[in-house]
Design a protein around this nucleic acid. Structure first.
Length: 675
DNA sequence: GTTCCGTTTTTTTTT
DNA sequence: AAAACGGAAC
């Protein structure tokens, strides 16, 4: 982690331990690396990639698959640093992004057009809601939950009549058909379609197999059966997978750590390497983590050990409510930054659920602490952002009904329920996307739409003209961000916000400023010299797969990191706070409802959280917490009792808080005067 | 027909 | 607390 980019010779391999070096050297043939938390896994993978390049393997032959965008980006930059090369042909991406890459090239073979839209979970739920309504089965199921069922069917985890209620099969068929008509794919399709493509077109598969002769898969314990299949199709024999069954935290998404056994079966004679030496955390933190994870019964036996001894005790605090908890964390960060000479990005605040982010954000804001939040109501999920992006999506693919419906009357242009119903009727008859139906309305209004209200018709014409004009403009080569700004101006989104939130101008202003940040981030993206094609399609691709990630990463240095435990995987921080360590949150109540066995996954989650810490771990919980409207009494997480007692120190939060505030002020003053 | 306003429901984790 | 829905006003 500390030794990077020493050019010349095998400099990048210096300081590897014996097993790590063995993993780096094993380039030919299948390799399975079982890597405990903090065992230098990322370093091994990046060194391995660098070693390949050094041996003269062309970058285009290497495919490195990871689980999150963050991990993919991290790997790419590290390999670049190690080799001091530009590496524009090296493929490091998530499985989903890789699927998109293939489909943008090859999807015509499956009868779709290249400009397909990608539907996220919200889009999917919206489409399902429409279909339920059309089929007269509104309220028969929660569209979001049904979407999850569809996903499980698509990935082969459930079958109709076997776990999935067969009465919804017709809805599913309709859903699939609609996606096709809209030229849209959902997230599962991003993996399923490449597989379908490869299985039906051996010639295309062969092209990619010949290209990607060296494949690496990170976070292998989190790959799903579908992802495994995709990898299996592409892989010849030079495959290296890296995983840790103790960090498997995505089983709810079909992740299957049995893939590790499947790999051993499918690639006989694979070299197996276990990395058990931890370079990240103090002995105290490690012992705590081991103590917790030992309570799991189903796991590969392995013990992390570290060279050093001791370390600061793990601090536990309990607060009356979430406000106090958040305020404490904010002040504690301030204090430790000054006293221990740390920078803000040395701190990570981890939580189980996104809903807990809110209070933390407020407290950090109140204390003026720069911070970066990944997750939460992610930036790209905000209504105003989705509205603007829907305009871009529709411009890119006019057949995208879900996004079209989102904006057809936003801002209001007199297109209401009745008008939309009339057009939908026509679209359904002809099995057409709405856009085509509207087009026919323009040319044959009287014959086809006798019941169409006059102003609705005018609104549609206005809308179509707007989109057509902007479509050409937005697809052009330069200046995407300026064009988006002009579009937002032309539709007078600001006026719309003011009228929508007339009681709350603050809010309107806040929302509009979010659009400003969006436009700014587009600008940053298009000016990036590494970005070879700064046009609309690649932008939308990127954005669709980035929904949960942060908009810009350039300005992230020097900020406190707030994120879910899931999002923190693969990262490390000198100081880690785990907030909301309460029963019902860290073993999440919803998760246990689904089955008592989920306690093991929840424990792994807690284990992942602990092992993010390098130096100091602080765990906080509340006695009362507002859930929905009423406050509920909370008890601390049962996992806390699994941490060996001698490693723990109970903080006196009440006394410390006001004191540290003053102290902090004094220290700040000192620092200020010092400059 | 469209818009406005007050009521209800909801939140586990991510590509 | 924010979005989605249903009924009343325009």
């Amino acid at each position: 982690m500390s030794k990077t980019g020493r050019p010349g010779g095998a400099g990048f391999a210096a300081g590897l331990n014996e097993r790590q070096a063995q993993a780096v050297a094993a380039i030919e043939g299948p390799v399975l690396i079982i890597a405990g938390a903090g065992s230098g896994k990322t370093r091994v993978i990046t060194c391995r990639a660098a070693a390949m390049l050094e041996q003269g393997i062309p970058q285009s032959a290497i495919l490195a698959l990871t689980f999150t965008n963050k991990a993919a980006r991290e790997m790419e930059t590290r390999v670049k640093e190690l080799t001091s090369r530009k590496l524009q042909n090296l493929t490091t991406s998530t499985f989903h992004a890789f699927g998109v890459k293939i489909l943008r090239e090859e999807i015509a073979a499956l009868g779709y057009r290249k400009n397909f839209s990608i539907y996220d979970e919200a889009d999917r739920a919206e489409l399902i809601r429409q279909i339920l309504r059309e089929l007269g089965r509104e309220g028969a199921a929660d569209p979001r939950a049904l979407g999850q069922v569809f996903s499980q069917v698509k990935t082969g985890c459930l079958a109709w009549g076997d776990g999935a209620d067969p009465s919804f099969e017709a809805v599913y068929e309709e859903y699939q058909e609609s996606l096709k008509v809209f030229n849209a794919l959902d997230f599962d399709d991003l993996l399923a379609k490449p597989i379908a493509l490869f299985e039906s077109r051996p010639d295309i598969l062969d092209k990619y197999r010949r290209r990607f002769r060296y494949i690496m898969v990170d976070e292998f314990q989190d790959t799903s059966a579908v992802q495994y299949r995709l990898m299996r199709l592409l892989a010849d024999r030079n495959v290296c997978v890296v995983g840790d069954d103790d960090q498997s935290i995505y089983s709810w998404r079909g992740a299957n750590y049995e893939n590790i056994q499947r790999f051993e079966r499918d690639f006989p004679g694979a070299l197996e390497i276990k990395l058990e030496q931890n370079y990240r955390s103090t002995a105290t933190i490690l012992e705590a983590a081991n103590g917790v994870i030992a309570h799991n019964t189903k796991r590969k036996e392995k013990t992390l050990w570290s060279g050093g001894a001791g370390g600061k005790p793990i601090s536990l605090y309990t607060f009356p409510g979430e406000g106090e908890e958040a305020a404490f964390i904010a002040l504690e960060i301030k204090k430790r930054r000054l006293e221990e000479g740390r920078s803000y990005d040395d701190f990570g605040v981890l939580i189980r659920t996104n809903s807990l982010i809110r209070h933390l954000e407020e407290a950090l804001l109140a204390e003026n602490i720069p911070h970066k939040i990944s997750g939460g109501t992610s930036f790209f999920q905000r209504t105003e952002i989705k509205d603007v992006l829907s305009y871009l999506r529709v411009a890119a693919n006019t057949d995208d009904d879900v996004n079209l419906l989102r904006i057809i009357n936003t801002p209001r242009r007199g297109i209401g329920k009745t008008t939309i119903a009339a057009v939908s009727e026509r679209a359904k008859e002809g099995n057409l996307p709405l856009w085509e139906a509207m087009r026919s309305l323009r040319y044959a209004r009287d014959a086809l739409f006798p019941e169409m209200p006059g102003d609705g018709c005018g609104g549609i014409d206005e809308f179509m003209t707007l989109i057509e004009r902007w479509r050409e403009n937005l697809l052009g080569k330069r200046g995407l961000s300026q064009k988006v700004r002009a579009l937002v101006d032309e539709i007078d989104y600001w006026g719309y916000l003011v009228s929508e939130y007339r009681k709350d101008e603050q809010k309107a202003r806040w929302k509009f400023s979010n659009i400003g940040s969006l436009i700014q981030s587009i600008g940053v993206w298009e000016r990036d010299p590494d970005n070879l094609d700064p046009t609309l399609y690649p932008y939308l691709n990127r954005i669709s797969l980035l929904s949960r990630d942060d908009a810009d990463d350039g300005a992230d240095k020097g900020k406190v990191n707030v994120m879910t435990i899931h999002a923190s995987k693969g990262l490390e921080f000198p100081v880690v706070f785990i907030a909301g360590a309460e029963d019902g949150i860290i073993p999440h109540a919803r998760s246990l409802e689904e089955g008592e066995a989920n306690i093991e996954e929840e424990r792994r989650l807690f284990y992942v959280a602990i092992t993010r810490a390098r130096d100091k771990l602080v765990i906080t919980s509340c006695a009362r917490r507002r859930r929905q409207q009423s406050a509920l009494d909370q008890t601390p997480s049962p996992f806390l009792a699994e941490i060996p007692a001698h490693l723990v120190e109970y903080g006196e939060a009440r006394n410390e808080e006001p004191m540290s505030a003053e102290r902090c002020f004094a220290l700040m003053k000192q620092r200020f005067q010092g400059r």
